[in-house]
Nucleic acid binder design. Structure first.
Lengths: 210, 210
DNA sequence: TATTCTAATTACATGAATGTATTTATTAAC
DNA sequence: GTTAATAAATACATTCATGTAATTAGAATA
């Protein structure tokens, strides 16, 4: 499964500008399909997504971009070997070199040399978190409702806050609703569309009259 | 014992511009005497020096200045308590909060929470290192040698690389020498001064003749 | 096929941190 | 007491990483 920049931005929390800049400066590039001019699409793999999320995580912790570049380079090289033991995995760096721990936590101790600065972050957790974000994004399901004999495409979003749903009708900007179950939410958007259409017709009539 | 900006720069490796900027932005200010116009002198205490060195160490490891500011703020508050157990001390931060460990290394393990980024650096080592740098700086002793009946001030520097000394005569720019013992080095600079004077006189004679 | 949407591209602006060079007032030296 | 050395102050330039807004060509849709 692949991701365009917008999805990457939503999942990782990076800005579109950052994603663009990082690609252009050869930091993290979309490995599925590169940008090729106006209107083309950058497509990132899940592995790319992990790299981007690790970079973001390190940034949030105050690590400078220059150091992160080196860390990500290591990750790029060793990503193929890593795939298996994700849950126990730890991604370690002293700012110069980065190493990955799959053993028990005691192994970390040995790395705490004098005056060394050690970054430790659980890659496994990051990956699990990403999986969650991705599936949440996927849960945005498209439905079709019929109002006055006409079909309308609607998009159903799970409301991660309180467990319900909110729904929108892209062809009628501003037309949205919400509900607790999928069925209820679909009924709600039907009503919303009806109301929306009525308002539009009223406006049209007013314009003609004037 | 206090330090002016030049000394601070030499000891910590920070540039004069950085020291100046950090003072102006209220990051690390000289606690002994503040700047008060042209030609005034910033004087830093040894405690200031530790803060500056910690900041530099974190910077070299790729931590952003903004995060370091927060780390140093913690250090400022807790410095009084810290003074005693320097050798065992570790200065820890996960980028948000900073804590200091004086117990055995096992305590560090507990702090390695999931997804947490942990910086560990040995404050004791940094302090010891600073003490060394400071005493090395102090070892720069001033002597006086007599050449052809005239007295010349000379400065003796311990050569930290190979244990010997190197010596210079500030009033004769470019006139320097070296030796293994202090006595030998002082003899060497006498010869160097003699040679230097001869060359200067020769130049003067040539200029007159032309 | 024409129009609209989309996402990259381009251009410009910003802010933090720092380098560099010049100026200036104080301190030290003669 | 005059001059020279010193270190802060000032001014300007630069780089990196980003924000923002306008432009543009390709893709999707009517």
């Amino acid at each position: 499964m692949n991701f365009n920049t917008k999805a990457v931005s939503r999942i990782t929390g990076l800005s579109l500008r950052q994603i663009d800049y990082w690609d252009r400066t050869h930091f993290i590039k979309p490995s599925v399909s590169e940008a090729s001019g106006y209107g083309s699409v950058r497509l990132y793999s899940f592995t790319d997504l992990i790299q981007l999320k690790v970079a973001k995580t390190l940034m949030d912790k105050g690590v400078s971009l220059q150091k992160i570049r080196r860390a990500i380079n290591y990750l790029k090289k060793h990503m193929p070997d890593i795939k298996k033991p994700l849950s126990e995995l730890r991604f370690l760096t002293d700012g110069e070199t980065i190493f990955v721990l799959t053993k028990n936590k005691k192994a970390i101790l040995d790395t705490l040399k004098n005056g060394q600065l050690v970054f430790s972050l659980a890659l496994g957790e990051i990956v699990e978190g990403l999986k969650g974000e991705v599936s949440a994004l996927q849960r945005e399901k498209k439905y079709e409702v019929t109002v006055r004999g006409k079909k309308y495409a609607v998009v159903l979003h799970p409301d991660t806050e309180d467990g319900g749903y909110w729904i929108e009708c892209p062809s009628l900007p501003g037309c949205a609703s919400q509900g607790d179950t999928i069925e209820e939410t679909l009924e709600m958007i039907k009503d919303a569309i009806k109301g929306h259409l009525e308002v539009m017709e009223e406006e049209k009539r007013v314009r003609k009259a004037s």
